[in-house]
Design a protein around this nucleic acid. Structure first.
Lengths: 237, 237
DNA sequence: TCAGATTAATTGTATTATAATATGCCTTAA
DNA sequence: TTAAGGCATATTATAATACAATTAATCTGA
């Protein structure tokens, strides 16, 4: 197995197996090879294999029992809010369908997060949102600055400002969804300033402690992307 | 360690350590004991300890590196959407604050899920929602039947009907949030029929394919609980 | 035909040994 | 005195082996 990055052996095996499971390379009926077979296949010790199996089990992908072997759990049990699981999912091809599901989730989470930010965010929290908006405006004006990064910072800062750990916990999920979304919806870099200003309106609403307005502005923002994607889905048939 | 249920050794150690970490029994600075110390403390082999450590690491609670030992990860990295993690959190005392956070999340997720169910749920999906409502009505009329169970079935069936795997994935989270909510908000069993009928209105809206109405009805339902909790928080000071 | 015992396959746990990693100390030279 | 580099050391990472526990499948006997 190629040594990639700083990951240790069991982590690399976890990645490889996780990816394969989600890609559907092991059926739910047949399950995975036995520990012994995996040892041989990867040329590693049982220790490493077992640790990988435990990590995947902890993420809900598999379960293992004596005599029965290692089984693939139903996809409904996979912890999709685990960063690794999400990554493996996207490795298997981010279809337009998944993108739509992402946007449906964002439409639930982010407007509510914006409202909570307006209600409960500290001044410092809100200042950070403002900084992100400034970053987006600079990026819109200067092609050398990354718009994507500032965009992520904006959405993450709102989740943080919601002062609700369950919302903030979704930052990786939202970031991933946003990134995938951007890949599909950004045709030209012409309207970057318009986008930045739309984000600015959300910031202003939060700054002025207007939860409903912040929520509506955020809904609008995500709905725009949704409209775009639905058109694309229709075109793709 | 007491042998509880069918869990094997490493799973029991995982539970015990997970609970302790979330209860704050190990500081982020000091971290956990070394593997060797944990072996001695629990009287088990390093194999079992390491597998527990790997599982907790997979859930974002800890990380371990050579020479450095086992560190507690910042709480922001804990995967709160993992069923076990959520359980350990509640073991450490479900405060009114957590309850409020739960309701804020439900207010984001469930109305949107109801709207999606009205738009995309299959007839079979919606039939199941109807069954859950019937179950609630029976429970409201007959004190021998569990209202709680039917209530959970209702909310879960809507998540399923959303036809979005990310919403359905939250069924454990929502169920937990709902259970905690019920423990706090159900004083008497007098208004059970009213509650069942409120749920029935959501079902009817979904059945009639009225996403906006379904969303609003669900928002109303959860807002009721939120109002109750906010009053309780104010009273508790 | 069925209940119960037996067998065998697989994971679960323990033990020991060695390797890899990273921290902090120690040495050395500028 | 201080900074760079190497060395010792603590801890996890990996491997190998042995045996125990679990459970599915098979066999046995009435």
């Amino acid at each position: 197995m190629a040594r990639i990055e700083n990951l240790n052996l069991s982590q690399r095996v976890t990645n490889e197996l996780g990816r394969a499971i989600i890609a559907g390379e092991y059926s739910a009926e047949a399950g995975l090879p036995t520990e012994a077979q995996l040892c041989e296949e990867y040329g590693i010790s049982r220790t490493a294999v077992r640790e990988a199996v435990k990590m995947l089990a902890a993420k809900g992908l598999i379960s293992s029992r004596p005599r029965q072997g290692i089984r693939v759990e139903p996809a409904a049990n996979w912890n999709l809010y685990d960063t690794s699981v999400l990554k493996w999912m996207l490795d298997s091809g981010p279809s337009l369908l998944v993108l739509k599901e992402f946007l449906q989730m964002r439409l639930a989470i982010e407007p509510q997060a914006a409202a909570l930010a307006a209600e409960f965010g500290t001044d410092e929290d809100i200042r950070k949102i403002g900084e992100a908006v400034e970053g987006m405006k600079r990026a819109a004006a200067d092609p050398d600055i990354s718009m994507h990064e500032a965009d992520l910072a904006f959405h993450t800062s709102i989740l943080f400002a919601s002062r609700n750990r369950f919302f903030f916990q979704l930052r990786d999920f939202i970031s991933t969804a946003l990134s995938v979304s951007i890949q599909h919806t950004t045709p030209a870099k012409g309207n970057d300033m318009v986008v930045a200003e739309d984000h600015g309106k959300i910031y202003t609403a939060i700054l002025n402690r207007q939860p409903e307005r912040a929520k509506n502005m955020m809904t609008y923002l995500i709905d725009e992307a949704m409209t775009f994607i639905e058109a694309e889905i229709k075109r793709a048939g």
